[in-house]
Amino acid sequence: MVQLTLPANSKVNKNGKHYPAKEGAEKVRTFRVYRYDPDQPDNPRVDSYEVDCSNVSMVLDGLIKIKNEIDPGLAFRRSCREGVCGSCAFNINGANTLACTKSLDDLGAGDITVYPLPHQPVVKDLVTDLSNFYKQHAYIEPFLQARDAEPETEWRQSPEDRAKLDGLYECILCACCSTSCPSYWWNGDEKDTNGEGEYLGPAALLQAYRWLADSRDQLTNDRLNKLEDEFKLYRCHTIMNCAQVCPKHLNPAKAIAEIKKMMVTRPPANTPKSVKAAAE
């Protein structure tokens, strides 16, 4: 069976610490933050921090304030602070998003809960291990591939063909989509040594379609062959969490549907079986 409940050592205990607001603090908001230290034998806990948010607009600003002024031990990734690098993707109030672009005003008046991205191994606190996610991205070969000789200048592309990449190239690989997908939770890792039984997830498949849709790329059929089994592409059941949470407002589910259309409409001569038979 898939793992429907957390393993024993991942269950959140009730030993979370509370950090009250300082005297005279204004506009106090409570951040409830997941904490886990692999060097300690304890299970994860949730610490609550009362933060003076008078000069805080985004969730990331609040986390940075906690780290700078209250608890320097809190670990989380961040870099650009403007929704470009994808580092600060967390589960905030139950939905995956970027902390740097999520306004406190959008989260209502209650507590703000910040957890790591779901169903990923936690390195420390809000930092998850995304090695498998990046491996899946590498699998789809995210770069231009052509059989023709390289031109002396540039690979030319019409404005119409370039427009087909809009809504695809903007992905920042924050992993919000993949880690919000139940199908990815159950089947996002390899089941055997051949690398089979692995759903690539919305992010990798959006990028796969970005190159399938690129008029300059000439390995369309090879790319489709790499996705042709029961898992890599077809574990998408159009749950649509990916489109719901994408902080860049992209639609990975639509890209996956487009790949399925390409699979169905490509000539039978291009299917893997025929390719294999031709090789023999």
């Binding site: 089994d229 029961e230 898992f231 079986k273």
Partner: peptide, 8 residues
């Protein structure tokens, strides 16, 4: 693993 995803 069979390559029958599209057929299915």
């Amino acid at each position: 693993m069979s390559k029958k995803g599209t057929t299915t």
